[in-house]
């Protein structure tokens, strides 16, 4: 049987492709591109939340936030490992990120400016991430799918802590509730943008669907997210900044306004509010750490030599 045919048969049978299986070059490249961007997103995502670790308003919240940011590092690590099964190296992928040749989710190019932003990131950004990641647990590539299973288990804590944080603010003083509203105002649209371009403008949806790297389209996931989130915002008693948002009984879904695609592409191309800082922060940490990594390598080889002697 031809390789290509056998490959597609495995995929169609909902079985997983494993690293040593034959796979089309395009499949491999698409996966590397996507898993790397996913991993970079987790790692860069540590920064906006890390920004509030030292200022968390209570020790309990501080502990939650540290645990969460630490999880992001872990998720980045699982994902880089999944990418490495495709024959690339984590350090190479990071270097491409540092050189601006790789992207990460644009959502992290927005700043965290008040404490409620930590809640909004958990509720909206992690909520959007879960919507996508649950789908990805069924992805055809074994290592990616397994990483997703692990990540999804941890991610539900992330979303719940964020929403609970906002409940606390919305049931608090008017000043606290205003923080929550301010956060929703700033994070709502970027969160919708996280689902990517309209299906009609999405370049590789069709092939990714056939390969079962992607199982649900951008617009469908976005709709699912809006339908899920609106009642949650209502419960909090804060309003979503979209005058066109309303329930459509015929469709059985919420209608919502147009995304500002100019902003979307501006941020994707590197000109969002925080793109440069995020990459610069990452590069600095990496360069500052070079001597440490070298020292560990040098020590390990000295030790091997001593053991051998």
């Amino acid at each position: 049987m031809a390789n290509e045919e056998r490959f597609q048969q495995i995929v169609d049978a909902e079985e997983k492709i494993e690293p040593t299986d034959w796979m089309p070059e395009g499949y491999r490249k698409t996966l590397i591109r996507q898993i790397a961007q996913h991993a970079h997103s987790e790692v860069i995502g540590m920064q906006p939340e890390g920004n509030w670790i030292t200022r968390a308003p209570s020790l309990h919240r501080k502990a939650i936030l540290i645990a969460k940011v630490q999880d992001e590092a872990g998720h980045g690590l699982y994902l880089y490992s999944a990418a490495e099964t495709l024959g690339v190296n984590r350090d190479e992928l990071q270097e491409l990120l540092h050189q601006g040749k790789h992207k990460y989710s644009s959502i992290f190019n927005y700043p965290t400016l008040n404490w409620a932003d930590i809640g909004a990131i958990g509720w909206l950004v992690d909520g959007a991430a879960i919507t996508n990641q649950v789908m990805l647990t069924r992805c055809s590539y074994g290592p990616y799918s397994r990483a997703m299973v692990r990540i999804c288990k941890e991610e539900s804590f992330h979303q719940r802590q964020g929403y609970e944080l906002l409940i606390r603010l919305c049931q608090g003083t008017p000043e606290q509730k205003a923080m929550a509203q301010d956060a929703l105002n700033r994070w709502w649209w970027p969160s919708l943008m996280m689902f990517g371009p309209h299906d009609s403008d999405s370049t590789h949806t069709e092939q990714s669907m056939a390969w079962k790297i992607k199982r649900v389209s951008n617009d469908d996931l976005r709709q699912q997210f809006v339908d899920m989130t609106v009642p949650q915002a209502n419960y909090l008693g804060i309003s979503i900044p979209d005058p066109d948002l309303r329930w459509n009984a015929d469709r059985g879904h919420y209608d919502f306004g147009d995304i500002d695609w100019d902003e979307f592409w501006r941020v994707v191309k590197g000109n969002g509010p925080m793109n440069r800082e995020r990459v610069a922060h990452k590069v600095k940490a990496w360069e500052d750490g070079a001597w440490v990594r070298e020292a560990a390598t040098a020590y390990a080889s000295k030790k091997r030599a001593r053991t051998a002697a």
């Binding site: 540590m46 502990a63 980045g76 440490v292």
Partner: peptide, 29 residues
């Protein structure tokens, strides 16, 4: 140690530093 997270020389060290920071925080609390 909380200041350090996302600034460590390697991802694995970020995670370790996070653990240690959390442990000290737990003791303090």
């Amino acid at each position: 140690l909380g200041e350090l997270i996302s600034n460590a020389p390697e991802l694995e060290i970020d995670i370790a530093v996070g653990n240690i920071s959390l442990d000290h925080l737990g003791v303090a609390r």
